[in-house]
Structure formats: structure tokens, C-alpha cells
Design a binder for these strands. Structure first.
Length: 725
DNA sequence: GAGTTTGAAACT
DNA sequence: CAGTTTCAAACTC
């Protein structure tokens, strides 16, 4: 404000003096000239004080620059808050196959990474967090290790969350803090407290597999061993040493976690360990086979109790690394990145497993896959269902809960694969390719750090994973705190920000037998679109993308939404309700577009296991984002039943509408039915399915889960599941 | 793969 | 609340 005056005063002083106005002013106040000059100088001196004349012109520039810097600073500062930066670096390092590691190793690692990211353990975040450390160390970014604890601490401070996850993180961080020596000591202490298996794990870090008897133990050992081996192989001696330490730390962390909650966490931890091992090397599969054998020997030990199941699950996962790798996406999915998942994860794993068991382990992929595919939501659902249903059958195949379609494939291949490393590898690759590869590609954020709704992943409540092409991504388990905070912030602004954009009333759910044409119109985009040029005929339109008709709430112009126009041209009754409750729509006509969608979905959809972010879990709704093309659709349709349950689906594609309705119905899911939809899928409008690719596969495969219907009851359960709150 | 278009999200 | 800017997906070439 002052600046202009000054400038005026400065340069043109003489001019002013000459000007009539100045004269006039001068007349008014005789003192002026001097003062004016004086002032001018003062300002000049101030402004220029440090900088030379160079800045003469540039007040403005200065400001701009200052602004510029400020912005940067802000950003920087913000980053720092998120311990993440360092972590990020580490993380990124991880992701970047920069190292001199052999190509093979690199590939395997990549695969592993993918898998790891998707690991479903409840501790997913922790897992990854921990996992990163080693990676960083591998890459020689010791700093990464160093910072991790700090990050954890920061997280603690920031969140102070009680969530089990957080707690775990904290513990992990603490563990990490320990110097190797301290670690050792701490470890010893832990061992005393830990159950035998854990202790074994501890010893395992250094011991060969042979020493282990217990299946669980075996897993741990394998994981550790594999990891260490891998590192050793890949890296020079130095790296090996570092890795060793990091691994130990990880192990400790795991142990600590386990210690904190032995029964529940054991599995997860085990899984975690396994994952790590896998991550470190693809070769683990072989190990897995070995483990599996061992496990088989020990498997008998497992009791029929739920706990036993859980363990089994863990074991299975571990046992079938392949699946994990493949799975990691899926099964792990749930656990993968999600905080929510994490919460649910434990349960999920259990549930899933149970389901598998209940289903009687279908030889076919579909069954397991379908469940898993549904991912976090499904997990939850499954949990409920599990509770409801009692019949569990032991799964011979040991299908892992988390497995995806890909996994299912693995299964299909059968045990041979397990035993056969090469086959396993192939399968894994296939899985990855088919499953994640495609589906997993997700966001491509460059400036939002994946912490805004611009980011599809973030918006979908899932962590970004490797397939994402995002930059400076903070939407990773490592940055849980940041993610949570951001989400809260956004939600504070708009409580429904993360709610499914398209809602479908459960009632509206069309019945399977119904006309396929029935449009998802019954579903409605909550806020309505605002399309001006796309005529609501392109994916730019959220309504269209979600496979729903436009409604009154839409402010679109020239609406031609094939799913239903704003004007209500579509019978579905679109216009009628902004809210989605009614479903006249069901009657709606399914449009060609819908069909297209379906087709696309089917094709694309390979879903990935998404790591749900914690918030999602917290939310009542758990939309499972599916990626069509690997990307989770921004909007996915979620059905909310009056009861409060929801299963998100992608309405987009008709499948969702049809098949899913079952699922959607708050209370029941009938997986088995028919159609491809059978798999519990969540489809995104984009055709991205939440459900695992298996669904597709599954669809092909006749078998489904036992045909049982899952009855979901009101979801009060969610809260409990959520570790956070 | 690069560039454009589009509309939601975010900001003011 | 409206207008503008930013952003990333969707789309086009």
C-alpha cells in the first residue's frame, strides 16, 4: 500500500513538485517538501537497506519473490511436519530400482514391493513403515532408518492416536530407535515376554530355518532368512550388514507388536514378516513352499478355534508367499495400506480366512478371490458374515484370505506351484500383471501430494501404491498421520467429502432377475454434477462416471446423461430424488452406456487390492475403490442401506447394479449367484472394480463361495474394528 | 506420449 | 455464496 506512494515520491519527486497538485498540497502545508523527501529516503533506506540499488524498481518484485519463497517455505515446513519427507525419500528410494541390484533381483523386489504395499495386515502402515527402513538401508540411505523413528515419534505427537495401529507404530518406532545393541537387549526382553513362536522369530533372525519347528516360527524364519539372503545377494557386504540391522529392527518391531497383542497380532506380524521376506526377494516363494511343508507338519497343531484360524490365516499367507505377492495386493489389500484396513485387517484376515474355510475352500479362484476382491469392504462384510455364519470348513488349499484373483489363479495352479518355485514365479508374475499391473495403476498426481481430493487414491480412501505415477506422494502408509490429518481437515470442511459420491439406496437395488436395463439411475450422485460441455456423456461427469443418472441436484447444462437425465427424461425417476432413496429407478432403463461400462469393467477391472486409508474405515462407509484400468474411480457408487451398511460398488457398470445389489443390500450378500457379478465387486464407474480381478476369473469359474449368503447386519461393528477410535 | 479439454476441488 | 484458480483425470491427436 505504501509502496506506491513511496515510489511516487521517490522517483518523480521532482515531477511531483512541479505538478499542480503538488503545488496545491504544498500550499496547504508548507512543510511538505522536506518531509516528503525525508520520508522517501526513509522508505528507500528500509527497502533497500540490504540490497543495493538493484531493487529500485522491484518493490513489487521483491514482494513477489518473497511470496514465492514464502510459499515454498510453507510447503517445506508443512512437509517437515510430515516426517514423511525423509521417509518419503527413503520410500522413493525404495521404489526406484536405482540400485545396482541385479535385474532379476530388482524385478523380484518390485513385485515384492507391490505386494508389500498391499499387504493387508492390520499393521499395514506399520509394516510398510518398517519395511521401508530396511529398504532405505539397502540403498545406503541410512538416514532413512534414522528418520523413521523420528517420524514415528512425530506421528505420535501429532496424532496421539490410540489406535492400535498407532500404538504399533509407536512401538515399532521405539524399537527402531534402539541401536543395534539396544535392539538386541530389547529384543531379549521381548523374547521373554513373547510366546515361543515369537521368540523363535527372534532367534531366527540369525538362525537358519532348520531350527524352527513351529509353522509360524517357520514363517518368520523364512521371511527373515529370505530377506537377509536377498539383501546379501543383491548388495555388497556393506549393504548386507546394514540390512541385517534393519531387518532385526523390523523383526523387533514385529516382535514388539506381537508382544503387545500376541494373539491377534501374531498373524499379522507373521504376515508382515513374510511380506518383508517376500519383498526382499521374489525367491521367497520357494521358501514358502518349504515353509508350507513345514507348516503342514505343524499345521495340525492349529486348533479349530477362531484363533487357530487366524493363525492359519497368517500361516497361509505366509505359507503361500506367492499368493501374497500376488495377493498382497488383494488380500493384503485390505491390509495393505489402509489404516482402516489395518484395523479391519486383522479381523479381515481372520474373516477372510474364515470365509475361505467356510466356503470350503474352493478350488477355484473365484471363491476366495471374490471375497478378497471386494477388499476392505468385503472384509468387513465378511467379518460380519463370518460371525453370522458358522460353518467353516477347513480349507485344504489353504487359500489365503487375502488372495486376489491372481492369487486364486495361483491356487488354481495348486500346490504344485507352491512347491515349484519357477511356476510360482510365473504365477506371481501373471498375477501381478493381470491383477495389479493393470488395475493398480492409479493416480498421477503431481502437485497435490495425493493429499487432496484431486487424487483419486486419496479420495477413494486408499493409499497410493507403486502403480501410481504420483510425485511427492504423501498418501502412503508412512505418512499415516499426514493422511489422517488431511482427511480430517477435508472432512471438517466437508463432512461428506469422502463419502461415496454416488449413493444407491439398498432398496433400490435391482434384483438380479430384474431387467438388466434397469439403470443405476436409482443411484444418484449426491451432490450432482456441474457439467457444461460434456453433456454428461463423458467421464468428466461424475454422474456418468458413476453410472448414474443426473438428478435435480445436478447443475449440468445440456444434460444427456444416458443413465438418466436431469430433466427426468429417463424413466428411472432420476429427477425425483436427490437422495437416492427411492428407487423408482430400478425400473430405469439400463442404457447402452451402462452395458459398455459393464463390459469395460469386466475387462479392466482387475482390481487391486487397495489399501484403504484409515479414514475410510472410520467412516461408516467403506467404499472400495476399484480401479478400472487400475485406477480407482473417483466416484464409486456406494449403496447405503437404511440399516447403515454399505457396500460400495461401482455402479458405473451395470454389473455393479445387478450383481452387487445383492451385496449392496445392507444385509445380505449372495455371492453366489450368478453372474459375474457374483463376486463381490465394487465397481467404479470407470470400470474400475474394487473387487478383485478374481471376480472375473471367479465369474468364469463356477464356484463361488459356498453360495452362502452373507448377511450383514448393521454396521455398528465398524467402529469396533477400527483401531483408531 | 504430449497436449488439450473438462469439471471437480480448492481457494479467495 | 460466487468467482477464480488449481488440479488431475479424461480425452484427443
Amino acid at each position: 500500500m505504501d509502496t506506491p506512494d513511496r515510489s511516487k515520491i521517490n522517483t518523480p519527486l521532482s515531477q511531483f513538485e512541479d505538478s499542480p497538485v503538488f503545488n496545491y498540497i504544498s500550499n496547504l502545508s508548507p512543510i511538505e517538501p522536506v518531509k516528503s523527501v525525508h520520508i522517501t529516503q526513509t522508505f528507500n533506506s528500509l527497502s533497500f537497506s540490504s540490497p543495493p540499488s538493484v531493487f529500485t524498481s522491484p518493490h513489487v518484485n521483491c514482494h513477489k519473490e518473497s511470496r514465492f519463497f514464502r510459499r515454498h517455505n510453507l510447503l517445506d515446513t508443512s512437509k517437515p511436519k510430515v516426517p514423511s519427507e525423509d521417509a518419503n525419500n527413503v520410500y522413493s528410494c525404495e521404489e526406484t530400482p536405482a540400485d545396482s541390484i541385479h535385474d532379476a533381483c530388482r524385478e523380484s523386489r518390485e513385485l515384492q514391493e507391490n505386494t508389500d504395499k498391499r499387504v493387508s495386515t492390520g499393521d499395514a502402515s506399520i509394516e510398510q513403515y518398517v519395511a521401508y527402513v530396511p529398504e532405505g538401508s539397502e540403498k545406503g540411505s541410512i538416514e532413512g532408518e534414522m528418520h523413521l523413528p523420528e517420524l514415528c515419534q512425530i506421528e505420535e505427537k501429532l496424532e496421539g492416536q490410540d489406535c492400535g495401529v498407532d500404538g504399533l507404530i509407536t512401538e515399532a518406532s521405539d524399537l527402531l530407535k534402539f541401536s543395534s545393541q539396544n535392539v538386541t537387549e530389547a529384543f531379549k526382553g521381548l523374547n521373554k515376554q513373547l510366546n515361543p513362536s515369537i521368540q523363535l522369530s527372534n532367534s531366527m533372525t540369525t538362525l537358519p530355518q532348520s531350527a524352527i519347528n513351529d509353522g509360524h516360527k517357520m514363517h518368520i524364519v523364512n521371511a527373515v532368512a529370505s530377506g537377509s539372503e536377498h539383501e546379501i545377494e543383491d548388495r555388497p557386504s556393506e549393504a548386507a550388514a546394514a540390512t541385517d540391522t534393519s531387518q532385526r529392527q523390523d523383526n523387533l518391531a514385529n516382535v514388539a507388536l506381537m508382544a503387545s497383542n500376541p494373539s491377534e497380532k501374531m498373524d499379522d506380524k507373521l504376515v508382515y514378516v513374510t511380506h518383508r521376506g517376500i519383498r526382499r526377494r521374489c525367491l521367497d516363494f520357494e521358501m514358502a513352499s518349504v515353509q508350507r511343508k513345514n507348516s503342514d507338519d505343524n499345521s495340525n497343531t492349529n486348533s479349530s478355534t477362531v484363533k487357530s484360524d487366524v493363525r492359519n490365516v497368517g500361516n497361509e499367507k505366509q505359507l503361500l508367499p506367492t499368493k501374497h505377492s500376488g495377493d498382497s495386493r488383494r488380500c493384503v489389500l485390505p491390509g495393505i495400506g489402509l489404516h482402516l484396513n489395518a484395523l479391519a485387517t486383522f479381523n479381515d484376515c481372520k474373516n477372510i480366512k474364515i470365509e475361505n474355510l467356510s466356503s470350503g475352500r474352493q478350488p477355484n479362484l473365484s471363491s476366495s478371490s471374490s471375497l478378497q476382491l471386494s477388499a476392505s469392504q468385503e472384509h468387513q462384510l465378511s467379518l460380519v458374515a463370518m460371525s453370522v455364519e458358522g460353518d467353516l470348513e477347513p480349507s485344504e488349499n489353504e487359500v489365503q484370505p487375502g488372495e486376489d484373483c491372481a492369487q486364486s489363479l495361483v491356487h488354481v495352479e495348486g500346490e504344485d506351484i507352491q512347491q515349484n518355485s519357477p511356476k510360482k514365479k510365473r504365477l506371481v508374475q501373471l498375477l501381478i500383471i493381470s491383477g495389479e499391473g493393470e488395475s493398480c495403476k492409479r493416480c498421477n498426481c503431481k502437485k497435490s501430494k495425493c493429499l487432496k481430493l484431486y487424487c483419486e487414491c486419496f479420495a477413494a480412501g486408499v493409499y497410493c501404491i507403486e502403480p501410481c505415477a504420483c510425485r511427492d506422494c504423501f498418501n502412503k502408509p508412512i505418512h499415516v498421520d499426514t493422511v489422517l490429518q488431511t482427511r480430517q481437515q477435508i472432512e471438517s470442511r466437508n463432512p461428506l467429502a469422502f463419502a461415496p459420491k454416488v449413493i444407491r439406496s439398498s432398496d433400490s437395488v435391482p434384483e438380479i432377475g430384474d431387467d438388466p436395463n434397469k439403470t443405476p439411475a436409482s443411484a444418484r450422485h449426491k451432490r450432482g454434477c456441474n457439467c457444461k460441455k460434456s453433456s454428461c456423456l463423458k467421464k468428466y461427469c461424475e454422474c456418468y462416471q458413476g453410472g448414474v443418472g443426473c438428478s435435480i441436484s445436478c447443475r449440468c447444462e445440456g444434460c444427456k446423461n444416458t443413465f438418466g437425465r436431469k430433466d427426468g427424461s429417463v424413466p428411472s425417476g432420476i429427477g425425483a430424488e436427490p437422495e437416492e432413496e427411492t428407487e423408482a429407478c430400478e425400473k430405469g432403463v439400463v442404457e447402452n452406456a451402462t452395458q459398455k461400462y459393464e463390459i469395460q469393467n469386466t475387462e479392466d477391472h482387475p482390481d487391486c487390492a487397495l489399501a484403504a486409508t484409515p479414514l475410510q474405515l472410520s467412516r461408516p462407509l467403506l467404499p472400495l475403490p476399484f480401479s478400472s484400468k487400475g485406477k480407482p474411480p473417483r466416484s464409486f457408487v456406494t449403496t447405503i442401506s437404511s440399516s447403515g451398511l454399505f457396500v460400495s460398488q461401482k455402479l458405473g457398470k451395470s454389473n455393479a447394479s445387478r450383481s452387487q445389489p445383492k451385496i449392496e443390500k445392507p444385509l445380505q450378500t449372495v455371492p453366489d449367484d450368478d453372474s459375474p457379478a457374483t463376486c463381490i465387486k465394487t465397481s467404479s464407474p470407470n470400470g474400475k472394480r474394487i473387487s478383485s480381478p478374481n471376480c472375473d476369473v471367479g465369474s468364469s469359474s463356477p464356484t463361488r463361495r459356498g453360495g452362502r449368503k452373507l448377511i450383514l447386519q448393521s454396521i455398528p461393528s465398524f467402529p469396533s474394528l477400527t483401531p483408531h477410535h
